[in-house]
Simulated assay, not measured.
Amino acid sequence: MKQETTVAFIGAGSMAEALISGMTKTLYQPEQMVVTNRSDAKRLEYMQQTYGVRIETDKEKAVSEADIIILAMKPKDAAEGIASVAHVINEQQLIISLLAGVTTEAIVSLIGKQVAVVRAMPNTSAAIGQSATAIALGHYATDAHLAIAKTLFETVGIVAVVQEQDLHAVTGLSGSGPAYVYYLVEAMEKAADEIGLDRAVAKDLILQTIIGAAHMLKATNKHPSVLRKEVTSPGGTTEAGIGVLEHYRYQEAVIACIKRATERSEELGQALLSSVK
């Protein structure tokens, strides 16, 4: 059922686009959504032409007329972007932040009012309704606000409710996670090319291999190490390939990757907190 709510996006990047693409399919009519950004008029025109949403160059107007305000700018632009519209935000509005690393406390401080803030960390698979999103409540957010945010993000995938301190880890794991998978696919495609497989054939095989493996993990509830061992015959091809991955410390690299992304989320948050203080 479509909801009679106005949603304003501050920021029109890839995450805003992914959410708009998903949400307009089930929950909101395009005209219920208004998009504004810092200065990129061409990007706004693209969003309007592609999704039918309203666009607004006057950020204050967009924010003042909204029931839900979604902060979708880059974290480095958050302090300036939030401060520029703080005076038109009121305590009846719900703020949903997609800003990696930026705490609800920092957002409330920038706005200077007791506003309800829900932090969310979706990923770009929201565009096809397959996001893994974690949400957390700020100090002034209620269960009613949680329900609104949960309904909103369930239109684009699954939703997990977590404590705010866990969102750094969520950012490093699933927020950035699609990029790790895409990077793996890049490598597999390059390998297919080097071993002489037709690119179109290789792409289909790679994608179905990843999809099939994900479905196996979900359907069987077996630990990934068990499934891996079931594929790995002694002295066989898989064992030979896994041996190379172990030589290059593949698992260690992935773990270090996720830890570093988590640390970066924490750094972004600290940088904004410092600017607020």
Results as ranks from 00 to 15, higher is better:
residue 181 V to H: 02
residue 227 L to S: 06
residue 142 T to G: 01
residue 144 A to H: 15
residue 213 A to S: 15
residue 199 R to E: 03
residue 229 K to S: 13
residue 146 L to G: 02
residue 149 A to R: 09
residue 207 L to N: 11
residue 204 D to C: 08
residue 148 I to C: 02
residue 149 A to I: 00
residue 211 I to N: 09
residue 143 D to A: 14
residue 136 A to Q: 15
residue 219 A to I: 03
residue 209 T to C: 03
residue 215 H to K: 13
residue 170 V to F: 08
residue 154 E to H: 07
residue 172 G to D: 05
residue 199 R to G: 06
residue 167 L to W: 04
residue 209 T to W: 00
residue 150 K to H: 12
residue 171 T to N: 09
residue 144 A to T: 11
residue 214 A to G: 11
residue 168 H to Q: 12
residue 183 Y to G: 03
residue 139 H to P: 07
residue 174 S to T: 13
residue 169 A to I: 11
residue 188 M to G: 04
residue 215 H to T: 09
residue 163 Q to C: 12
residue 205 L to S: 09
residue 157 G to D: 05
residue 199 R to W: 00
residue 221 N to Q: 10
residue 154 E to T: 12
residue 162 V to C: 13
residue 160 A to G: 01
residue 186 E to L: 10
residue 184 L to A: 10
residue 144 A to V: 04
residue 175 G to N: 07
residue 146 L to V: 00
residue 228 R to L: 03
residue 185 V to E: 07
residue 159 V to T: 09
residue 160 A to D: 10
residue 220 T to G: 00
residue 136 A to I: 14
residue 132 A to Q: 10
residue 182 Y to H: 12
residue 222 K to M: 12
residue 221 N to M: 05
residue 182 Y to Q: 06
residue 207 L to D: 10
residue 187 A to R: 06
residue 163 Q to I: 06
residue 216 M to V: 03
residue 140 Y to V: 01
residue 136 A to Y: 08
residue 192 A to K: 02
residue 138 G to L: 09
residue 231 V to A: 13
residue 228 R to Y: 04
residue 222 K to G: 02
residue 141 A to I: 09
residue 220 T to D: 04
residue 193 D to W: 07
residue 212 G to D: 02
residue 186 E to V: 07
residue 149 A to N: 11
residue 161 V to W: 07
residue 183 Y to P: 06
residue 173 L to V: 10
residue 147 A to D: 09
residue 145 H to T: 02
residue 148 I to L: 05
residue 154 E to I: 04
residue 156 V to P: 13
residue 226 V to L: 09
residue 195 I to L: 08
residue 154 E to F: 05
residue 214 A to Y: 12
residue 186 E to M: 13
residue 215 H to P: 04
residue 206 I to C: 06
residue 146 L to E: 14
residue 171 T to S: 07
residue 226 V to Y: 13
residue 182 Y to W: 02
residue 214 A to L: 01
residue 196 G to A: 01
residue 218 K to M: 00
residue 217 L to C: 03
residue 192 A to M: 00
residue 213 A to P: 01
residue 203 K to R: 15
residue 147 A to Y: 05
residue 167 L to H: 03
residue 223 H to V: 02
residue 150 K to F: 02
residue 221 N to T: 04
residue 212 G to E: 02
residue 163 Q to R: 14
residue 176 S to H: 06
residue 184 L to I: 05
residue 150 K to E: 11
residue 131 S to R: 04
residue 214 A to P: 12
residue 227 L to T: 01
residue 167 L to K: 05
residue 155 T to G: 05
residue 156 V to I: 13
residue 200 A to I: 08
residue 159 V to Q: 06
residue 166 D to S: 15
residue 214 A to V: 07
residue 172 G to Q: 08
residue 131 S to A: 15
residue 184 L to F: 14
residue 204 D to G: 14
residue 213 A to H: 00
residue 157 G to T: 04
residue 200 A to G: 04
residue 192 A to R: 06
residue 225 S to Q: 11
residue 168 H to C: 08
residue 158 I to N: 04
residue 190 K to Y: 00
residue 231 V to R: 03
residue 189 E to C: 08
residue 204 D to L: 15
residue 204 D to Q: 15
residue 159 V to R: 14
residue 197 L to D: 05
residue 131 S to H: 06
residue 143 D to Q: 15
residue 148 I to S: 02
residue 161 V to Q: 12
residue 165 Q to M: 02
residue 183 Y to C: 08
residue 141 A to G: 11
residue 142 T to H: 10
residue 152 L to T: 13
residue 164 E to R: 14
residue 211 I to T: 12
residue 148 I to H: 04
residue 211 I to C: 08
residue 149 A to D: 03
